Simulated scan of single mutants.
Amino acid sequence: MMKITSALLVHLIISLLNQMQGNESTLENIVGFRRLNILDGYSCPVNNTIKVENQENELLCLILCSKLSSCNGVFISPDSKERCVMCSATFFTIDITQELSTTRQFYKRIRRSRNNFTTSGVSVYSFAKQDLNWTNAEENCKSYGGHLAKIISDEENQYVVNVSPSSHIWIGGYGVGGPVDTFRWWDGSRLVDGYDNWSKGQPWTNEPDPTCIALWTSSGQWGDEVCHDKRHGVCKFE
Rank of each mutant, 00 (worst) to 15 (best):
M2R: 09
S6D: 06
V10C: 15
L17K: 07
Q19C: 10
M20C: 09
G22Q: 09
N23D: 06
E24A: 08
T26D: 15
L27W: 15
I30V: 06
F33Y: 10
R34A: 15
L36C: 05
Y42R: 04
P45V: 04
V52Y: 09
E53G: 15
N54Q: 07
E58C: 09
L59V: 10
C61F: 06
I63L: 11
L64D: 12
L68K: 15
S69H: 06
C71L: 06
D79H: 15
S80Q: 08
E82Y: 08
C84Q: 15
M86A: 14
T90R: 10
D95M: 06
I96H: 10
I96S: 05
S101G: 06
T102N: 14
R104V: 14
Q105T: 11
Q105H: 03
Q105R: 12
Y107K: 13
I110Y: 07
A128R: 01
Q130C: 02
N133D: 01
T135V: 05
E138W: 01
C141T: 04
S143E: 00
G145Q: 04
G146H: 11
L148I: 07
A149P: 11
I151A: 12
S153C: 08
D154P: 12
E155L: 00
E155R: 02
N157A: 12
N157C: 04
S164I: 08
S166H: 06
S167H: 14
H168K: 06
I169P: 03
I169A: 03
I171R: 07
Y174E: 11
V176D: 06
V180P: 07
W185I: 12
D187M: 09
D187Y: 10
D187S: 11
R190T: 11
L191Y: 00
D193W: 15
N197A: 00
N197P: 07
W198Y: 13
T205Y: 02
N206E: 14
E207K: 01
P208C: 00
C212S: 11
I213C: 09
A214M: 15
W222A: 13
V226D: 04
H232Q: 06
C235Q: 14
C235Y: 08
